[in-house]
């Protein structure tokens, strides 16, 4: 089979940008598991909220980036409320309990979104239609902006976890939460902060991705399987693993549909199974056990 190199190039860029979105969504899930041992599927809700708020603020003000910022803030606020009201009470329980709770939250939240915004999918205008030329292929600049945002977020999260004392405490708590608690460190506050960062990044992902899709209440569910795979392949609790895994799945989805479209939906699952057979904890993760 021969492939047009121009198609491959644009497909690779597409894969990078979708990988960037996967990363923004998966990093929160991954950190939440690493630190609190919860499976927070409700991140997909903050993703939808981020997209809808981006849409509404964009329509009201004509400012796309203002909308994205508002979307990320809305994701963070929604996650703060959920953490305070719900997750705080179930940290001590088995991870499956949080998974079911968060699944319920996701569906309940979709209901609220439908109530507020209705069921009609909403288009969000792409902030820039500029394109640039790579080896004779026209690449939309906006796709590269998405990749750039993911790279910046990666760098910021890395710096936060490695260079600040709060970030170091979060990593210490991922290592052993009891030891951190025993030192008189307020672990509850670390949990809240991590959860809110996760929610804000999910909101950011929704806002940034909105111009490339139609914003509709079910958009989180469409993303769910892919994000879950990214987290599992990367290994729960690892940022590096999540980034690498997001890159892989992005390319598999994108190149897969170029090579043989029907396989594109299946391929990520096959890869996930293969990796889990070799490394049950994912590429870089901690074991999925209860503390």
């Amino acid at each position: 089979m021969s492939l047009d190199p121009r198609l491959v190039m644009s497909s690779v860029i597409f894969g990078l940008s979708i990988g960037g979105i996967y990363f923004l969504l998966a990093i929160g899930l991954s950190l939440c598991f690493g630190l609190m041992r919860i499976i927070s599927l409700d991140q997909l809700l903050y993703y939808s909220i981020g997209a809808f708020v981006t849409y509404s603020v964009g329509v009201a003000t004509g400012q796309f980036w203002l909308g994205v910022a508002a979307g990320a803030a809305a994701g963070g606020l929604a996650s703060l409320a959920v953490e305070r009201l719900i997750f705080r009470r179930i940290y001590a329980r088995d991870p499956t309990f949080s998974m079911i709770t968060s699944f319920g939250l996701l569906f309940g939240g979709i209901g609220i979104i439908k109530f507020v915004w209705g069921v009609v999918p909403r288009p969000v205008e792409v902030p820039t239609l500029a394109q640039f030329d790579v080896l004779g292929t026209q690449i939309p600049v906006y796709r590269l902006i998405i990749v750039g945002i993911a790279v910046v977020v990666y760098a910021l999260i890395w710096a936060f976890l490695h260079r600040t004392i709060v970030g170091k405490a979060i990593r210490a708590a991922i290592e052993n939460v009891e030891h951190v608690e025993g030192l008189g460190i307020n672990v509850g506050r670390l949990f809240t902060l991590t959860f809110v960062i996760a929610g804000a990044l999910s909101g950011l992902a929704g806002g940034v991705y909105a111009p490339l899709i139609l914003v509709d209440p079910m958009m989180g569910l469409e993303m769910l399987a892919f994000v879950f795979m990214v987290v599992i392949i990367g290994g729960l609790g690892s940022i590096k693993g999540t980034a690498i895994s997001a890159l892989i799945i992005g390319q598999v989805v994108s190149l897969g549909s170029l090579i043989y479209a029907p396989a594109a939906q299946m391929a990520p699952f096959v890869i996930m199974l293969a990796i889990l057979l070799i490394r049950p904890t994912g590429l870089f993760g901690v074991a999925l056990t209860r503390r």
């Binding site: 004392i165 405490a169 990593r171 210490a172 290592e175 030891h179 460190i185 307020n186």
Partner: peptide, 19 residues
Amino acid sequence: IGLFAHMSVADNIAITPRL
């Protein structure tokens, strides 16, 4: 013993005072 593996000795000791 439970020193945090990714932190220097000084960071390990200082974590609570710094927070």
